[in-house]
Design a protein around this nucleic acid. Structure first.
Length: 156
DNA sequence: GCCAACGTTGGC
DNA sequence: GCCAACGTTGGC
């Protein structure tokens, strides 16, 4: 296995759950992920203290809005077991939960949001996964360099 | 609202 | 195990 990712990008539709919501709640379970690759990142690699760019997808100008920190490791995603929940998955059960969620805590909100269009244009961010067309993965590893660069832009 | 990208499902 | 069909994500 290659080096452990320590930095992430997590997507959320801003009118569904935004960084302002996280700020208000202070922390949240990142439930509702129904993609195996994204789940595996949470289950196998995310450690308490890992940092994540909070990305708002959807809307007219998708962007990175701030930073969240992993504050608890993966635990079964209870929304998969709840028949009334939008993310209910009949294949999951208490004994075989299938889906998990880590917990994220609020760290900060960028002074300037960093639009995807900006990310795509910046040579320093060449190769970042979120800028690749059709990159639908809702949890993505980010290199330390790219993470720190975006945070610097966001807080400048 | 359109459509490209791509993950998942299911027939064979 | 292949691959076509289907569904979903998400940028535009």
């Amino acid at each position: 296995m290659n080096t452990e990712p320590r930095y992430w990008l997590i997507k959320s539709e801003s009118d569904c759950y935004s960084i302002a919501d996280l700020k208000k709640e202070r922390k949240t379970r990142w439930s509702g992920v129904r993609n195996f690759q994204a789940r595996n990142f949470m289950r196998d690699l995310m450690k308490v203290g890992d940092k994540a760019l909070f990305y708002h997808s959807g809307g007219t100008a998708p962007h990175v809005a701030g930073v969240a920190v992993v504050s608890a490791e993966a635990a079964p995603d209870v929304t998969a077991l709840d028949k009334k929940d939008d993310h209910y998955d009949p294949k999951s059960s208490k004994t075989n939960p299938i889906w998990v969620a880590t917990e994220f805590s609020y760290q900060n909100t960028f002074k300037n949001v960093i639009p995807l269009s900006r990310i795509k244009l910046d040579p320093a961010l060449k190769g970042i996964m979120v800028a690749q067309t059709g990159s639908r993965l809702s949890i993505q590893p980010v290199s330390r360099q790219h993470f720190e660069y975006i945070v610097k832009l966001g807080m400048a």
